[in-house]
Design a protein around this nucleic acid. Sequence first.
DNA 1: GATCTCATGTAATCAGTTACATGATTTC
DNA 2: GAAATCATGTAACTGATTACATGAGATC
Lengths: 176, 176
Amino acid sequence: MALEHAILVSLAERSASGYELARRFDASIGHFWTASHQQIYKVLGRMETNAWVTADVVVQGTRPDKKVYAITAQGREELAAWTTQPAPLEQVRSAFAVKLRALPFGDAAAIGDDVRSRRRAHVERLEYYRASATRFYPDPEAIGDDQLGGWLVLRGGIISEEAAIAWCDEILQRLR
Amino acid sequence: MALEHAILVSLAERSASGYELARRFDASIGHFWTASHQQIYKVLGRMETNAWVTADVVVQGTRPDKKVYAITAQGREELAAWTTQPAPLEQVRSAFAVKLRALPFGDAAAIGDDVRSRRRAHVERLEYYRASATRFYPDPEAIGDDQLGGWLVLRGGIISEEAAIAWCDEILQRLR
DNA sequence: GATCTCATGTAATCAGTTACATGATTTC
DNA sequence: GAAATCATGTAACTGATTACATGAGATC
């Protein structure tokens, strides 16, 4: 349900081809909503049928033609209406938590290794978010209305990565 | 992939019918891995074929018959082998983050209401986790090897709910 | 009389992943 | 010569949700 709306947000910020959208999902948006290019193309087709977006074929000389998608008035309406509906509380689905519960039946050393490698990944993501924050929002007190959403999402990423790292540290302390 | 293993953990702790498993998933385990009864029955069938579990039909006088599933030696092997494999980093998929990014195109007041209601839900979960912690692990320093996994998972729940609440507070501060 | 609990399933559908396919241009 | 980038898709499959189905006993 929400991939459509993630695409609408992205197109409301700036029109793009399916390929460009896929790259945006690999980068910024994808930290909070992942999507493969196959899925994006499929959903874009559905959205065009619904008239939430229009597609313009742009012929490029040397590179292949592309379809540039733009949000329509109907698309904007749909997006606005969607924001008035409460977002479902995402239910957690953590294979890692299951693995921890399996501690008495499994390999504690291997689980410890996994925790350390997860910790590294979380530190990496945290550093990426912090770099994005200082780069795109150098003065957090002076953020405008159009930037507030992006800033708050980044803050959420930073807060949850910090929490994940704290959890890893607590686990490692207990495992040794 | 991991529902099988979540069921194996649950059955390793204590044998149960599909119905009982579904109730466990509604309660404790379900906070970290949700599953409906339909899915559980389907996967149990597959697991029986793989000989990871055995089923014993228990005839009950007044209540309907039930199939009690028990983990096999092969199931225990599979579970142990699974713990040696790194758990995939769960990718975030948050409709709420998408909604925040949609702030400039949507209804800020409705989004604020949503944040307040999410905050209440997180506070509720946090209180539930804290109650479980004091009830099942009254002395955290004296936790045995067989209890450590459960305790660490609960700690993860507590840490992430605290983080979610902190994020909500930061959002609310910025929205008004 | 209505609803809840116990107990197990099938069927249809939807969302998402993985694999496969094509083909020109640019960079190493 | 190999690999990456640009660009758009189809097909098969898996995992999960929603809807439907049944039926007895217990509780309100």
